[in-house]
Every structure is written in structure tokens, then in C-alpha cells.
Nucleic acid binder design. Structure first.
Lengths: 342, 342
DNA sequence: ATGAAAGCGCTAACAG
DNA sequence: CTGTTAGCGCTTTCAT
């Protein structure tokens, strides 16, 4: 069943059917109505691949994320999808599981599908896959890569001011030794954030101690491992910033298992503000990264690029705010009066 | 850049390029290699829409889910996507947020995109959208709808035996009054499950009391509301089965807030076994619904239908198993010696 | 206001 | 083994 069939039944040409479907104004109302009736009676649905072939555009945006089981992403996907649908776009979603090889193949599949644009939220960004998108003139927006180019925009998370808020909050509570459990080693994004942490610590007039800075993996297990190490230290930090909420939650679990009170003995601050933060016990203090704003920023960036295919990308920012809950509290007094802090 | 361009550079015809790309065996190795080199040098990526147009198939499966923020679904999506990728299929994902209107539009978009098959996991299944898929001969698999047709298979959750296990487990712990917080009213799936609960209760020789059966909404808020109602009862159940883990978690939260001990005063059992179950406190006893198996069953069903387009659908089952954690414990003794139980 | 027809890029049947 | 060509369904210019 194609437009010609509809045309035949309605006694018009396929061109007219096309015009009716696309709401062209140069069809006589009666004709349009007649065609419309046939379309409805036959349940006709046009074949999008013909349109895609003709235009080279598919009304589909690609969304690439590293790990869909991190609840931050579903919440983001939901916002992003809603925006796409209201703009008559479909979403082709793919997960990389942090594997560059998967990313490579994913991008290839998206090129084949002629996606109109790609939002690449995967942290393991090498430049190569990006180049293949640029080469094919597919607008691209990255998350927190802080680097733009022709056809490539970036939405960065303004974590620095958030981290400063977090550190200030802890300092006010009397904390002097603040640790950090970060992301996977070797990812630019992880390094940036450690730097942000260092800056925040130093600007607060505290001492940055690399001993207290541990890598993680953006998942619960990373937080658990980090916390185990921290709890084994002779002099341990009295508060910890985690690179995301899952990491923080992993850390809290280990603390609970080992009978270390939160926030009595260690305060913990997460990052993202996923729904889980209110559900875990104690509720997690965290830096909120607003999903809706982020999704909007991503879409807008792509939309702009799509309209100016030769334009240079733009850098935009999404800021974070501290949400204080119950996982942070006054610093404990040193158990060993030793530990000179500050 | 299309196959003809590649052909020109390599000094062959576009047909040969097509053959090389599709690994046809009737190209002389040297020719193939020459073409291959040109493809690589130019970073050529074929235009899938032409293939889709030609075949009427897009190598894309649709996946429709009600609520991506329910962690059960990301875990399922991840499994499903992995299976698709390893079968060279893409995934078009859409969320309905339990709104029939959204489902309708989603299905239309999928028809336009010429998806090869659809996995419809949204609970609010009316027959109408399904018919539009059947009408267009798109293989369809539903979840727990327990109804099949030409081109429509179903994967059901064998919750009855799981519920019996759950009820037996509670009975052994001394519980006699067992309540249930279900899904949204008016969905077939919700009603089926209530029936399953009733059967399980009665087969265990316990009394089914409709007072203790409350509706929810498959989300935390529904569990909270249900639990609030339950805690307000003069004689309350000593244990509760929830229709999914989120509901159970909502119920647990309300209990904690109101100072009702779990499992000391009320035992709670969830359904799904999302990762969260191990993270909440106390860890949630639940009926595990294995994602990997479910995703496999869904894919297999679609795969079979795709190969036998005129075949009748099949009914398959995924079973559940009880995972005992810390949210269930011995029944408390009646605070008011009144309440005649059993 | 409507129709005829070319062409988007790929594939497969057919010809050589 | 390789090339030629028709055609998948839609849009759009050009004619009428």
C-alpha cells in the first residue's frame, strides 16, 4: 500500500496524496478531504525510508550513553526523548558500556541510519569516532568534553562552583580532611573533575591530600572499593565527595556494613541527584545536575548545529546546586589527636 | 558519496561495490580488495535508507516501555539491546508514560520507520494499537498479556508459582494476614496479578481479605500511598506483597518514616529484583524476574514471528523465584488480641 | 489546483 | 566474474 494506491482510490495523483499528507495549502479542500478519508479508511502509513532516502535526513537523533543502569541516564533519556517527540524526531539509543569498540560500531550504525544528529554522552570519548561524525557532517554534541569544533558543540557541567559549595558546606561543619572517590582512571572527564575537586579544596584554604583521592568506576562497586580503602587508613578523611551518586551510595553501603556511622563518623556527598538519593538511608546530600535543563541544552545545541551545518559549535554550561540531606553532618573529633589538619 | 562514486574510483560498477560490501562470494578477490581499499580511504558508509526502501525492512526493532525510570526497564533494555546488536539490529526505543495516546503515536512512528518487529512492554495495552501493528504485518511480542494471535506472541511472567512461594515463605514465618499493593486500576495486567495473589493466598489455606488489597501505580508513590492506608487500619496485615519492587520500596519508606519496624512489625516482599533491592535498608525480599531470560524470550519470539510472517504467535513463560533478604521476618504477635486471623 | 516524471542510493535479476 | 538496469516510495519541479 503506497501513495499511488491511495491516489488511485481517491481518483487523484500520488503527488496530491503527498501534498495532503504534508499539509500543503495548494490542494482544494474537497480533494484533500476525499484523500484524507481514503487514508483513514485504509489505515495508510507512509513509508519513511523513501523520505529519508530523498532528503538524506531521517528525523532521528542518536543518543549514546555509557551505562543505562546508572539511574541518572534513564532520567535524562526520558527528558531527551520527550523533547525529541515534541519535535517530531525519533531516538536511536545505544549503550557503550564504556567500551570504545562498541562506541565505534554504534556510530557507524548511526551513520548508516542517517541520523540527523548525535548526542554523545559516553565518557570514553576518543577523537576518532568524533571525526567520523564530523567527516559525515553530522551535528554532534558531547557532554563535558569542553572542546568544540565545526559542527561539534559541548554542554559542560559547571561542577566547579558546585564542588566549592560542597566543600564550603563541609568546612562549615568542621571538616578539614576531605577525600574524593572519582571516576575511572584514564578518562579525561575523570581527570577534569579531580582537578575541580583540588581547586575547590585549595580555594577553601584546605589541604589537598592525594592520599585521600581514589579512583572509582562511576558505579556502586567503585564507591565500595574506594570506601574500603579509605576505612583502612590510619588517618582517614572525615568527609568524602564522590564523582556521582552511585559511587557515593557504594561508599555508604560499605560504611554501613563496617559499622561506620554516616554522617556521625564520615560525611558523604554525591553528584547528580538521582531519585535514589532520597531513598537510601541516610538520604544522600548531593550536587544536583538538573536533567531537564541538560536535555534541553543538548537538544538546543544539536538543533542550532542542524540549522547551521557549517557553523562552529558552541560551548554551553549546566550548573549544579547543592542539595543538603542527611549524609552530611558535623565532623567528628579526631580519634587520634595526632592528625594535623589544615 | 555513494556506491557509484566508489565504483568510479575503483574502476568497477556500483553492483560490484554492493557485492563487496555485502560479502558476496562472486567477486574476484583482487577486485574486492581494490574496492575495499577505496571504501576505507574514503570512509564510505552506505545509506541504509535505500536498503530499507528496497526491502521494506529496516533492521530495527521497536521497544516500547511504560516508564524508563523504573530501574527494571533499563536493566531489561540493556539486555535487549545487546541481543539486538549482536543480531545486527538497531533499537528504536520509546516510552509511553502509561498514556495510551502516546502509545498510539509511538506505534505510528514505528510503522513509518518500518521497524521489523515490536516488543510492547507497556501495560496499558488496548487492542487498538495492536491491531494497527497486526494490520501492517509487524511481528509483535507483548509482556504478560496472555493472549496471542496471528503474528502476535506473548511472554508471560509466571508469577503464580512465585507468589505461592512468597506466601508460603510468609506463612512459615507465622503470617496469617497478608496484604497486597498492586498496580494501577483498570489495567488487565494489574487484575491478573491480583487474581494470582488471591489464588496463592487461598491455596495456602489463608483468608483472602479484599480490605488488605490496595491499588498502586507501579511507582514508589503508589507504594507509599498504599502503605499509609495500611498503617491506618485498626487491624493491619502483618505482611505485604507488592506488585513490583518500587511499590515495595515506597511502602518501606512510609513504614520507616512512621517508625514501623521492618520486618519486626511488617514484612514486605517485592517483585522484579532490581538492583535497588540490595541497596535499600533493609534489603528487600523479592520475587526475581530474570532480565536476561526475559529479553531472550522477547527476542526469540520476535525472531520466530519474523521468519514465519503468517504463523500464529506463541505463548512462552518466564518464571520467578523468591529471593529472601531482610525485609521479611517472623510475624509479630497481635498487638490487639482481637483480630481473628485464619 | 493537479498531474507527470525524475531522482534519492541500493540491490538483484538478467545479460554478457 | 562483472555490468546494466529497473524499481523500492516519496517529493518536487515543471507543465498544464
Amino acid at each position: 500500500m503506497d501513495m499511488r494506491d491511495i491516489a488511485k482510490i481517491a481518483g487523484v495523483s500520488s503527488a496530491t496524496v503527498s501534498r495532503v499528507i504534508n499539509g500543503s495549502s495548494l490542494v482544494r479542500p474537497e480533494t484533500a478531504e476525499r484523500v484524507q478519508r481514503v487514508i483513514e479508511k485504509t489505515n495508510f502509513v507512509p513509508n519513511g525510508s523513501a523520505t529519508t532516502l530523498k532528503y538524506g535526513r531521517s528525523s532521528t537523533f542518536g543518543l549514546i550513553i555509557p551505562d543505562i543502569t546508572n539511574p541518572f541516564f534513564p532520567e535524562l533519556i526520558r527528558c531527551f526523548e520527550a523533547i525529541l517527540v515534541s519535535n517530531d524526531q525519533d531516538m536511536l539509543m545505544a549503550t557503550t558500556d564504556f567500551q570504545p569498540a562498541k562506541l565505534q560500531r554504534t556510530i557507524r550504525r548511526m551513520l548508516i541510519r542517517k541520523v540527523d544528529a548525535v548526542a554523545l554522552l559516553a565518557a570514553e570519548i576518543e577523537t576518532q569516532p568524533i571525526e567520523s561524525l564530523m567527516h559525515n557532517r553530522v551535528p554532534l554534541v558531547t557532554l563535558d568534553r569542553r572542546s568544540i569544533a565545526r559542527g561539534v558543540s559541548d554542554v559542560a557541567v559547571e561542577y566547579l562552583s558546585g564542588m566549592k559549595q560542597a566543600v564550603e558546606h563541609l568546612k562549615r561543619l568542621g571538616h578539614r580532611r576531605i577525600g574524593y572517590i572519582g571516576g575511572s582512571l584514564g578518562l579525561t572527564i575523570s581527570e577534569h573533575r579531580v582537578e575541580g575537586f583540588r581547586t575547590a579544596i585549595e580555594e577553601a584554604g584546605l589541604k589537598y591530600d592525594p592520599k585521600f583521592v581514589l579512583p572509582g568506576n562511576y558505579r556502586i562497586s567503585g564507591g565500595e572499593a574506594g570506601m574500603r580503602e579509605i576505612l583502612a587508613m590510619k588517618t582517614r578523611p572525615t568527609a568524602i565527595l564522590a564523582t556521582n551518586d552511585l559511587t557515593a551510595i557504594g561508599a555508604m553501603r560499605v560504611a554501613r556494613v563496617q559499622g561506620v556511622g554516616i554522617p556521625e563518623e564520615i560525611s558523604i556527598i554525591g553528584f547528580d541527584d538521582i531519585e535514589l538519593c532520597e531513598i537510601v538511608y541516610p538520604a544522600l546530600t548531593t550536587l544536583r545536575l538538573p536533567r531537564q535543563e541538560l536535555a534541553q541544552a543538548l537538544f538546543r545545541a544539536l538543533d542550532v548545529l542542524a540549522k547551521h551545518p557549517h557553523g562552529r559549535g558552541h560551548q554551553s554550561m549546566v550548573s549544579t546546586t547543592l542539595v543538603i540531606r542527611d549524609s552530611t553532618g558535623p565532623a567528628p573529633r579526631d580519634r587520634k589527636p595526632a592528625g594535623k589538619s589544615v
